[in-house]
C-alpha cells in the first residue's frame, strides 16, 4: 500500500510541476486570425481571363510599399481593424519601349468590423463585412484617380464575397 502511495505522490508531484511551469503561449502560425482582403485581377474584355499585374506595388497612407509584383493576379490587402475604412494606393506599371510608365489609383474600402475571441495566446481577431453597393453607407470600393492624373486603370470590379473571414477565397475581382 505504501509503495502505491509513494508512486502516486511522485506522479502527482511530477504532473503538478509540469503544469505549474507557465507555458509561454504563442499564437500558432496557421491559426485563423484577422484575414486580409483577397483581390484577383481579370481581363476587362474577358471577365473569365485572369490578368497578371505588371510592375505593381501598393501601399497605404505613409506605410511601407508592398511590391514590386509581376506575374501574378492574386494579392492580399490588409484592412485596418481600428476603423471602418482603409485607403490603398494601387500603382500599375506598363513597359513601353524599355521605359516604365506608372498609373496610380486610390481605392478606399468601406466595411464593418466584428471582433471575435480566438484564444488566450492570440487574443481577438477581426472579421470584415464589405458595405453593400447602392446602400446608404459608402460604397464597398471607392476608386479615385491619384495626383498623377493618369486616369483610372481600374475600370470595373465585382464583390465575390463580402464576408471577409479567411484568406481561402477571393473577395473582390478587379478588371483592367
Amino acid at each position: 500500500m505504501k509503495k502505491i502511495i509513494t508512486v502516486f505522490l511522485l506522479a502527482l508531484l511530477t504532473a503538478v510541476s509540469f503544469w505549474s511551469c507557465e507555458k509561454d503561449d504563442i499564437c500558432a502560425e496557421g491559426t485563423v486570425t484577422t484575414p486580409s482582403l483577397i483581390i484577383e485581377f481579370y481581363n476587362r474584355d474577358n471577365h473569365t481571363d485572369p490578368k497578371n499585374v505588371t510592375f505593381f506595388s501598393y501601399f497605404s497612407a505613409d506605410l511601407d510599399t508592398i511590391g514590386t509584383i509581376n506575374g501574378t493576379n492574386h494579392i492580399e490587402v490588409p484592412l485596418r481593424t481600428d476603423t471602418t475604412a482603409t485607403t490603398w494606393n494601387f500603382r500599375l506599371g506598363s513597359s513601353q519601349l524599355g521605359e516604365i510608365t506608372y498609373n496610380t489609383d486610390v481605392i478606399t474600402f468601406n466595411y464593418e468590423t466584428k471582433e471575435l475571441f480566438v484564444s488566450r495566446a492570440c487574443g481577438f481577431k477581426s472579421n470584415f463585412t464589405l458595405n453593400l453597393q447602392n446602400g446608404t453607407a459608402p460604397d464597398p470600393l471607392v476608386i479615385e484617380d491619384s495626383e498623377d492624373e493618369e486616369g483610372l486603370w481600374i475600370q470595373e470590379y465585382t464583390i465575390e464575397e463580402s464576408n471577409i473571414e479567411n484568406e481561402d477565397e477571393v473577395h473582390v475581382k478587379i478588371y483592367f
Partner: peptide, 16 residues
C-alpha cells in the same frame, strides 16, 4: 483590454 491579432503586421496592432 485586448489586442486584435493580425499576422500581416502591416498596420499597428489595434488595442480595444
Amino acid at each position: 483590454s485586448y489586442k486584435i491579432y493580425d499576422d500581416s503586421g502591416y498596420f499597428e496592432q489595434t488595442v480595444v
